[in-house]
Design a protein around this nucleic acid. Structure first.
Lengths: 228, 228
DNA sequence: TGAATAGTGTCTATTAGACATTATAAC
DNA sequence: GTTATAATGTCTAATAGACACTATTCA
């Protein structure tokens, strides 16, 4: 008996860009428009069937490259979805392994965009196909949790950055203001930052010290699965 | 082209039972002996191919029932493994969605056991098939993490219990002693326990107050995936 | 009465948060 | 000098851990 289950890999991709009206940095995510049934015309997570010669994470990375033209700064498995009622018709049984990724949108200013690929503000999404709205909500929940106890926020920034820039990332993800003094103490106490010795000048104020992250510390602690 | 990927669901099952020599409560897990190649004769996680008419969690629950005869008190998805080098021969490409479960071993004193199903102390395992040693290590890591910030320890206990019994579960999972006074304060401050008004007598000491958990609080906070 | 564990009180060190103060650039 | 933000200092409340002490039962 042939296995009747199709296995797909999709990826929730996050980048930080200014909100179209407020100009404040907010999370964006790229979606692709479905060009056939079911859910034709609706927006969906980028993804596709798992190739016979690629691992799960490799498939997620490929999807990301094809959709955005960017390289992920962080990539982690989110969840495997496989309930029976995921598709409207029971005809095609689909199990999806979902990854989530962080990219630096500045590199290509959101990269490829076309009629069928568009970036949306993560809190202002259109109607999504299948259970993708639930998946995106879960990915946002994971990101907002993880930014508080790991250094994944660094994935949105360049090689070196000021504490104000790092704090702006945290504030955009968590959607609340953070006290600069307390933020500084917390971050410095974690021992994850190394001062580069250089400063960022240009503002009409005291120059800000530049930092980089200690490369020997993982972006997130996934226990025995480090680097998988 | 038919999808060449086989999808299986396996489950890491944990129960608390006395260690065979020290008699102290420790984590046990049931394994099944492989009766054919590859890895014939080695021990492996209970599991099997995903049925066409069952969801992922349902398949994990079925595996658990077939292996132990028990009903899970807690069941959560662990991870989907799908790298290309999981099986020794590339002939069969396998993606496994792994769940982990907590059961009360006392109900049936470890339930079914046979030549090909045996319970092992989780820290004293034999050589395992495939990547199952890594998977078990990861499941233990998740359990030990989660017991510190959720109330999953309750899954090992009955309807009502004393604080000393709950503390014994934490100590067995975390493998270190906890101060009774501080443990009590922490648990009571969390507001998850409700005193039943009854007491456990019989020891040669002051009777212990019995508690039950507030049922309106989930065993673990999985965000938008609550109850999936 | 003594042994054993239940349960409470208290002290200290650490941490999070609020907020004041000083430093230094651009204008 | 003024303004804006960098960077530091200080106070308080909450929390974790160590440990002393009281309460109550059984042998």
């Amino acid at each position: 008996m042939a296995d009747p289950v199709t296995l797909a890999v999709s990826t929730v991709i996050f980048a930080l860009r200014p909100h179209p009206t407020t100009r404040l940095p907010v999370l964006w995510t790229p979606l692709v428009r479905r060009i056939r049934a079911p859910h034709q015309g609706k927006w969906a997570l980028p993804g596709g069937p798992l190739g016979a010669d690629e691992g799960l994470a490799a498939a997620a990375g490929r999807t990301l490259r094809e959709t955005t033209g960017l390289t992920p700064r962080y990539l982690e498995q989110l969840y495997a979805f496989g309930s029976l009622d995921r598709a409207p018709s029971a005809a095609e049984r689909m199990v999806s392994v979902i990854y989530w990724a962080l990219v630096r949108a500045e590199e290509a200013d959101a990269g490829i965009e076309s009629v069928n690929v568009r970036w949306f503000v993560a809190d202002e999404l259109p109607e999504l196909a299948f259970d993708h709205a639930l998946i995106l909500e879960y990915a946002l929940w994971r990101l907002r949790n993880k930014v508080e106890y790991s250094r994944i926020a660094a994935a949105f920034l360049g090689e070196s950055f000021t504490l104000a820039e790092l704090r702006a990332v945290h504030e955009a993800v968590l959607q609340r203001r953070l006290d600069p003094a307390n933020f500084r103490r917390q971050i410095e106490a974690s021992g994850r930052l190394v001062p580069t010795g250089e400063f960022r000048t240009g503002g009409r104020h005291r120059p800000a010290r530049l930092f980089r992250h200690d490369e020997s510390i993982e972006l997130a602690d996934n226990g025995p699965l480090t680097g998988l």
